[in-house]
Computed example of a mutant assay.
Amino acid sequence: LRASLLDCFDRDNYGMLSTCFEGILKKDPTCYHTLARLISMHQNGDYSADSLLEMIGLHLDATFADHNTWREFALCFLKISQYEEDRMSVCLNGNGEKKQGFTVRYNRIPKILTEGKQGKNWMFRCRWWLNRHFSKKVLASDIATGDLQLLTYKAACASHMYGQEFHYVVKAYTSLQDENDRDLFMFLRMHMQNSIRLSDHLSRNK
């Protein structure tokens, strides 16, 4: 009710709206309508990628979502990978010498994913989803459905969680090569090249 009232009368109060929607999802993580509102806010620049990643994670803990949800999940990971690849250009002036430039790289994976209670939750999620979403049996089922978008977007997420050598990722990659779907193939390849390898970071933070 509170979220509905805010949406009607104070829809520009994005902080309060997102807090309300997050509360709803935490109580009922199967509620796709609420998740869709957060996705819309994120697409409009009013909700962060790491917060949306957490909310989609909760939703996927409770449901087996369609390819659209997995696509948004993958795009959140990609944005976080861009945090990690953030670069700062610095110019140096010598005594009459030509300016030189260099770059400094930072590891900026949000602490919400790797530290404290949330870090422990993500570690558990990475282990649990090996069977829930990414087992060999699930992979065979996903391939059998013929839904290449679902296969692609799940594989993109798996590459960020487990690395590009993970069996689900490798099989999806070869399947897309065989299907000759260039757009989906390039989507998966981009995510593989920018994988944050979340499980590796979590293992180092034990």
Rank of each mutant, 00 (worst) to 15 (best):
F64C: 05
F9K: 07
R132F: 10
G23I: 14
S40D: 14
S40W: 05
Y83D: 13
P110E: 09
F64G: 05
F166D: 05
D142N: 15
F73G: 10
L1V: 09
K79P: 01
Y32E: 05
S141R: 15
S159E: 08
H201I: 05
A140D: 15
D28I: 04
Y83V: 00
Y14Q: 07
N121W: 06
A140W: 05
L52C: 06
M88W: 13
G45V: 11
F21W: 12
R108M: 14
K99G: 00
F134D: 01
L188E: 04
T69I: 09
L188H: 13
L35E: 04
L188K: 12
N44K: 14
E22A: 01
R189D: 13
A172M: 07
L139S: 00
H160I: 03
N13Q: 04
G116D: 08
G146W: 07
K206F: 09
L58E: 03
S199Q: 11
S89D: 14
S18E: 02
C157M: 04
G101T: 11
F73S: 01
D28S: 11
S175H: 15
C126W: 07
D178K: 15
L1R: 13
C126Q: 05
H201N: 08
N121I: 01
A3F: 13
L202V: 04
F185M: 05
M16K: 10
D50N: 11
L92W: 13
M190H: 12
V90E: 14
D12R: 15
Q177C: 11
T19N: 10
S89A: 07
R132W: 06
A49P: 00
S18V: 00
E54W: 06
H160G: 12
N180V: 01
L25Q: 04
S81D: 11
F9P: 00
T152A: 09
D28K: 15
V138T: 06
I39S: 02
S203Y: 09
L151T: 01
Q43P: 00
T19E: 08
L202Q: 03
Q164D: 14
K154S: 04
C31K: 11
C8I: 11
G57F: 02
K117R: 12
C126T: 04
T69W: 07
F185E: 06
W70V: 11
T152R: 08
R108S: 07
N194T: 11
I112M: 11
L139A: 00
Y83M: 05
Q177F: 02
Q193L: 13
M88P: 00
A144R: 14
S195K: 10
K120F: 09
A158D: 06
L184G: 01
Y173D: 03
I80R: 07
R125L: 12
H59Y: 15
D7C: 03
D142F: 02
Q164T: 09
S40M: 02
S159K: 07
D50W: 03
L38H: 07
K98Q: 12
M55V: 01
S203H: 13
Q164P: 08
T152C: 09
F64I: 08
H191Y: 07
A36W: 02
L130Q: 15
A156D: 12
N131A: 05
K136H: 12
G23P: 10
K136Y: 00
L198S: 02
